[in-house]
Amino acid sequence: MEAFLPIGILFLFAVMLCAGIYVLTNLLGPRIFQKNKLSTYECGVQNPLFETNARLPFKFRFYLVAVIFLLFDVEGAFFLPWALVYRESLQLGANLLIAMLVFSVFIILGLIYVFQNNYLNVD
């Protein structure tokens, strides 16, 4: 845990920087109240109530991308510890190589499946 202490210190510095940014803006910037500033940007279309609502129905395609990302990220996470010990394990035979090849076959099948069914067609 000793090695992670500097990261904690860095975290504190980063927080101080961000807080400093906020404080400085609030101190140094003017505050002029104009009604137009209250509404969000709408390409020039004026909203008379200055209230917009962006809570649209969620597009399902983005969720699919996220779920497929999850699967392949877990696969990447499986590759990382394998890669760590792979080179040393070669002294003991081709076990890890065969294991990884079998694993990759399933990953590749999954990738092919995703492409066949066009699940990643976000537009």
Binding site: Y41, K59, F69, W82
Partner: peptide
């Protein structure tokens, strides 16, 4: 709370997460 912001954020985040996997594979 802006439609365009939301869509932009969705697209940006799906771009960022899609490109994280090649980074993980290259790191591996």
């Amino acid at each position: 709370n802006n439609k365009y912001s939301l869509l932009g954020a969705m697209r940006s985040s799906s771009q960022v997460i899609s490109y994280e996997i090649p980074i993980a594979l290259s790191a591996a």
